[in-house]
Design a protein around this nucleic acid. Structure first.
Lengths: 147, 147
DNA sequence: TTTCCGTTGCAACCGAGTTGCAGATTATCG
DNA sequence: CGATAATCTGCAACTCGGTTGCAACGGAAA
């Protein structure tokens, strides 16, 4: 990822581009799918987990990333490609592999709308599919789940 | 709930109806929507949380209840009305209130199907909506979130 | 340069979930 | 019925991801 681009991205989201935040952002960009706080701890090597935690919280509040709950006990995140609070039809589904623990973004698969009963005010939607991913199905043994 | 009915329900699911399990089942039946391990700890009063935990795990494995991940950090459960591993169209959506922390079963709202990319083997689906529930919207102050 | 305020690292903490183990309970068999 | 085996339960301790308090750091403004 381009340095300049990252800085502009943060500024566009009203986030002060500090050194640590740039490091975290660059680490995030290297993931194809979702990533966890622990993933970033490994990927950045130098940044403390509490700083990563606060960075993630900040980024999420500024709509730079989405929070993905995959039921693994570990919160996952994925970069948002929009600059604003996404509407349901801009969101995609996620797939959590029960064998290897990876959580995929099904970018092409948008979340179908539902008719929520009257009176409920909708803010966010999560559509999560669980099962076995193509990788694990072919190499039938599979990897151990990393949670 | 009828004692006899509960016993038969457990037997039908290949679960030995012990005293503790009957107590937990009766407690579960008293919830309209979803409940957590902590909820059952309070509701049963006498049963230890590790026993409840093992009971929940067992019940879930025997398709007596569904696991609902609402992103609150606490796992929620709801009773399954079928005797088997539910197919996607038998499942309903859930609504998590960000203010009071309650998670509702939208029994009438079934989960819409998606076209999962080829190669993914689907086991379970979760459709979770977050926002503010009718209760909290009317009494605009709302209750404090209980997580 | 000095001051100030947001940011960061460290260490301690929190709480839901999970497990090992010994004692209690239930089922099985003679 | 009594002995034995298998299962279940409560207790206490532990795990681990997430979260927070606080002091030190760093960079912008005065």
């Amino acid at each position: 990822m381009n340095e300049k681009y990252g800085e502009e991205l943060l500024l566009r989201h009203d986030i002060r581009p500090t050194a640590v935040r740039m490091l975290v952002l660059q680490a995030m960009e290297r993931f194809d799918d979702t990533f966890s706080l622990a993933d970033l701890e490994v990927a950045t090597e130098t940044v403390d987990k509490s700083s990563i935690f606060r960075t993630l919280t900040l980024f999420a509040a500024h709509h730079l990333l989405h929070i993905v709950e995959d039921g693994s006990g570990t919160t996952k995140y994925c970069l948002c490609r929009n600059d604003h609070d996404c509407t349901p039809d801009e969101l995609h589904c996620h797939f959590h592999c029960e064998r290897c623990g990876r959580t995929y973004c099904l970018e092409q698969t948008h979340i179908p709308a539902i008719a929520c009963p009257a009176g409920f005010e909708v803010h966010q939607i999560n559509y999560l599919v669980k099962g076995i991913c193509p990788d694990c199905r072919t190499k039938s043994g599979g990897t151990e789940p990393s949670r």
